[in-house]
């Protein structure tokens, strides 16, 4: 059957035509409900906010009134001792001037923390740390998501050097291997290696967030990806079991040792 490229548009029009009016209305109703719910929550928040502002305003008025009364009282030449600064406590607490001093002492600590966050990963990890668009996209996305959901910002730095070193251990037979946790939870050991292999695909595969350049390293990574695709059984359900998986794990281990030696040196 021969087709023209206009079929792209046909597909779009076909899908759009199949969307029923009832679906269209129902979705709009749901959007409206969510907006109303959101606005109602905002109203409650605004009520609290305004209530707090009014209370603050009244408090300030009261304070001003108190101070004015005291000043008038003082100007009339009566009890001088009653003019105590409002923030000074009777049991020898901190005076406003002392407070200012302690605040200024804390400032350099904050600056130090900010400097640590702003450390340039490119400078830290050198040539092999190449920030690609995908990497930035993933992190920007993560920052947005976490910021919205939990009012918290998470910045994760990933680099090829640590990745290579960590994965030597992932594919190495160690008695207290992390896989034990999965096995204890009822999963077969192969599942741990299957998950690890999918992680490798996400990290250094053609669409991974770590991308490196260089003839040798690209060759090693291509070999790793070849073994990885067998481990994750691309296009098939499940994943290899038993001896087949053991052999693949051994191959992965050897390849990661090679990668580790390449990026971290033989003495790493």
């Amino acid at each position: 059957m021969k087709r023209s490229p206009d079929k792209y548009k046909d597909l779009d029009e076909n899908i759009m035509a199949l969307r029923g009016e009832s679906s269209r209305r129902l979705t709009l109703d749901r959007i409206t409900d969510r907006i109303e719910e959101y606005e109602n929550k905002n109203k409650k928040f605004l009520f609290i906010k305004y209530g707090f502002s009014i209370a603050m305003f009244l408090g300030i008025l009261f304070l001003v009134f108190q101070l004015t009364s005291l000043t008038d009282f003082n100007q009339k030449g009566t009890i001088q001792e009653t003019l105590i600064p409002p923030t000074t406590s009777s049991d020898g607490g901190i005076s406003p001037s002392e407070n200012t001093e302690s605040d200024s002492e804390e400032e350099p600590v904050t600056e130090e923390v900010e400097e640590q966050i702003e450390e340039d990963p490119l400078e830290k990890y050198g040539d092999f740390y190449i920030v690609e668009e995908d990497y930035i996209a993933i992190n920007t996305y993560a920052v947005m998501l976490i910021d919205e959901e939990a009012d918290e910002i998470l910045i994760e730095n990933v680099n090829i050097k640590d990745f290579a070193r960590d994965h030597v251990n992932v594919f190495k037979e160690i008695p207290d291997h992390e896989s034990e946790r999965l096995i204890n939870a009822g999963f077969p050991e192969e599942y741990y290696y299957y998950l690890s292999a999918t992680g490798v695909q996400e990290s250094i595969g053609p669409r991974g967030y770590i991308q490196v350049t260089g003839e040798e390293i690209e060759k090693v990574i291509a070999e790793i990806m070849e073994v990885t695709s067998v481990m994750v059984a691309e296009g098939k359900p499940g994943y290899p079991m038993g001896e087949e998986m053991e052999e693949l794990v051994q191959q992965m281990y050897e390849l990661f040792v090679e990668l580790d030696e390449y990026v971290n040196g033989r003495d790493s």
């Binding site: 059957m1 087709r3 079929k7 046909d10 597909l11 899908i15 199949l18």
Partner: peptide, 10 residues
């Protein structure tokens, strides 16, 4: 959705 045959292939 039950798309037209030619669209479904694409």
């Amino acid at each position: 959705y039950m798309l037209k045959e030619e669209n479904n292939e694409l």
